[in-house]
């Protein structure tokens, strides 16, 4: 554990809590991609199956359980509790175009051809693209509420901090995980355009982020 890793995890947690509270308090999931949230729930489910097979630390176990619970609670709010506020027409990204290649790649490029290992690899690859339906939705509607952009900012910051964590671990421990690092770099790149808009539009202005 290093400071980048810890801050990264905290940003990830903050992002998930921001989204959950936004939907819970406003009783609306307008502007939120339910598909991205289902993908994230799938990411956590397939990655954290090792909760049943190996114990790493109390921190690790607690964080995994919290992420899983919040991910499913968010999906529940979007698709069941506040379903009437869900913009299904704008959330039109075809997730099969993500799931099929990601599933195929996880069978081809993994550390061991074992069920848990393939599911872990699948979760790593899927996480790198899971935000695309949300970014697609913002591009399609041309706007996002500022609270939604704060959610995306913390999610992107979490990714950037994990990159710093890997640089740190490489230099201090000689640790290098190519699947996680390559996917992590790809994932972080998706946020770059958003970061630019966030700093130039959201933080300088107020209210919604509108696309040029």
């Amino acid at each position: 554990m290093n400071i980048f890793r810890l801050l990264g995890d905290m940003c990830h947690l903050v992002a998930i809590i921001i989204l959950f509270l936004k939907i819970w308090r406003s009783k609306s999931c307008a502007g939120i991609s339910g598909k991205s949230q289902v993908l994230f729930a799938l990411v956590f489910t397939t990655r954290y199956l090792d909760l049943f097979t190996s114990f790493i630390s109390v921190y690790n176990t607690v964080m995994k359980v919290v992420f899983l619970v919040l991910a499913y609670a968010t999906v529940y709010l979007i698709y069941l509790r506040f379903r009437s506020t869900y913009n299904s027409e704008s959330d039109s990204f075809r997730v099969e175009f993500l799931l099929v290649p990601v599933a195929g790649l996880s069978f081809l490029e993994n550390y061991a051809f074992a069920p848990l290992e393939i599911l872990w690899t699948f979760s790593i690859y899927l996480e790198s693209v899971a935000i695309l339906p949300q970014l697609f939705m913002i591009t399609k509607t041309g706007e996002a509420e500022s609270i939604t952009t704060h959610y995306l900012f913390f999610l992107g910051l979490y990714r950037a901090l994990y990159l710093a964590n890997w640089v740190w671990r490489y230099h201090t421990e000689g640790f290098f995980d190519q699947i996680a690092v390559v996917s992590g770099v790809v994932q972080t790149i998706f946020y770059c355009d958003f970061f630019y808009l966030y700093f130039t539009k959201v933080l300088r202005g107020s209210g919604k982020m509108t696309l040029p």
Partner: peptide, 10 residues
Amino acid sequence: LSPKDVKDEL
């Protein structure tokens, strides 16, 4: 380090 070591990350 083996790939298993990455599993301590979330």
